[in-house]
């Protein structure tokens, strides 16, 4: 059973960057990459695909990242998923709010691709 990583971001370039960064894992391990462009689509994917790790942007149209995070964590069937929040906001209050909602990590843009790889490996226990 392959491990699934879902990337949710409305910014096409960021989505691409994450995809290209994480492609390495697809090559080396049994990992599948999925992408969504807004909160609602992301939530639909989460429900249908049940990914293991989610990179979730906070500022998105239709449904923001906090909301997606809250819904997922409130759902007992889904809440074993590991969520990494990505944001341009870097303030302590935002970080605190994200972690309180149950996210595993909070990464501030601009992030380092190497860091993304390292964290993903750790969380997926690869």
């Amino acid at each position: 059973m392959p491990k699934k990583i879902l990337i949710v971001d409305d910014e096409v370039h960021i989505k691409m960057l994450l995809e290209q960064t994480l492609e390495e894992l697809e090559d080396d391990y049994d990992v599948v990459l999925l992408t969504a462009s807004d909160g609602e689509e992301g939530l639909a994917f989460i429900r249908s695909e049940h990914p293991d790790l989610i990179f979730l942007d906070i500022m998105m149209p239709k449904m923001n990242g906090y909301e997606v995070c809250r819904i997922v964590m409130d759902d007992p069937e889904l809440n074993d998923v590991k969520i990494i929040l990505l944001t341009a906001k870097g303030q302590e209050v935002d970080r605190k709010q994200g972690l309180e909602l149950g996210a595993k990590m909070y990464m501030t843009k601009p992030f380092d691709p190497d860091e993304i790889l390292k964290v993903s490996k750790e969380l997926l226990e690869l």
Partner: peptide, 20 residues
């Protein structure tokens, strides 16, 4: 500053990927 972070992410990220 917030708005600058997103393009900067792409810029830095892609340059790193390109270099790799």
């Amino acid at each position: 500053s917030h708005e600058l972070r997103t393009p900067l992410t792409s810029l830095l990220g892609f340059s790193k990927i390109i270099k790799r």
